[in-house]
Computed example of a mutant assay.
Amino acid sequence: MVLQSKQQISSYIIDSQEAEIKRIALELHEGIGQNLYSILTGLQFVESTAEEPHMKNYVREMESLIEKTIQEIRLLSVELHPPALITLGLLPAMKSYIKLYTSTFGILVDIESTGRETAIVERNRIAVFRVCQEALANIAKYADTSHVKINFNWQETVLNIIIQDFGKGFNPEEDEEGSRSLGLAGMKERMLLTGGEARISSKIGVGTSIEISLPLK
């Protein structure tokens, strides 16, 4: 009974966090992003009417800065809450996120999928995506690698995902209270709430492997 109560509390906290993340992502894209676009349009008009060369150059520099900021906000919005995750499903969302990940960190990610992709309820879809996202974030921070391999294996009753980084690896016992261990614990907790599991194994000099399993029925 106590364990069930703790799981219910954890589930409520995670659901609340996801709702807030979705709200922030929407505000970034629809609110701040649109406001910046309006400012950019105004600056473009100012540039077209300015006569002094130094003023034109100054306005053009401001336009460039705002364009860069708009792009960064769009990327952040997608990272927080990918539209593809809701509209297209887990695998397309992961492929879309990997493009963003590679362009940001320069780490190549090979993703393969075997078996027939199965529809996953939204809550579990988000959980698996967040676990994969956390795994990739840890790789960028700690693994010191340029290559990652992700395999989706769709079976009739379970989805198995293996993420391998071929990096420098680590000793879990030496990082029991570190930020990486907190992230790994969060991954395990998310999968536990779906009825699934996340297992982490690592060997120094060889790399780290994360195995995720999600019941589909």
Rank of each mutant, 00 (worst) to 15 (best):
138 N>Y: 02
74 R>Q: 13
22 K>A: 15
156 E>R: 07
75 L>N: 14
155 Q>K: 12
117 E>N: 04
131 V>R: 04
76 L>P: 07
114 T>I: 12
179 S>N: 10
176 E>F: 07
30 E>Q: 14
1 M>Q: 07
154 W>F: 15
39 I>P: 00
165 D>F: 00
35 N>M: 06
113 S>A: 13
111 I>Q: 04
95 K>F: 00
25 A>D: 11
205 G>A: 11
110 D>V: 04
207 G>R: 01
169 G>F: 03
207 G>C: 05
43 L>R: 02
25 A>V: 08
18 E>T: 07
35 N>P: 00
188 K>R: 13
136 L>F: 04
59 V>I: 15
193 L>E: 02
29 H>M: 09
50 A>E: 09
67 E>F: 06
19 A>K: 15
18 E>N: 14
122 E>Q: 11
59 V>F: 12
111 I>E: 06
148 V>H: 02
137 A>M: 06
171 N>Q: 10
107 I>D: 10
179 S>H: 05
98 I>F: 12
176 E>A: 13
128 V>H: 01
150 I>C: 02
42 G>C: 10
118 T>Q: 14
133 Q>V: 01
88 L>Q: 15
14 I>M: 12
36 L>I: 03
42 G>T: 11
143 A>G: 04
129 F>P: 01
77 S>R: 08
38 S>T: 10
119 A>C: 01
117 E>S: 08
105 F>W: 10
154 W>A: 07
120 I>C: 01
60 R>W: 06
95 K>V: 06
59 V>G: 11
88 L>H: 15
16 S>K: 14
140 A>W: 05
185 A>T: 09
158 V>R: 04
205 G>P: 09
189 E>C: 06
187 M>Q: 08
14 I>C: 04
198 A>I: 03
143 A>T: 02
136 L>V: 02
112 E>V: 02
182 L>H: 07
4 Q>T: 13
186 G>W: 08
195 G>K: 07
16 S>Q: 13
105 F>P: 00
159 L>W: 00
76 L>V: 12
102 T>W: 00
122 E>P: 00
110 D>M: 05
181 S>Q: 12
71 Q>T: 15
120 I>T: 01
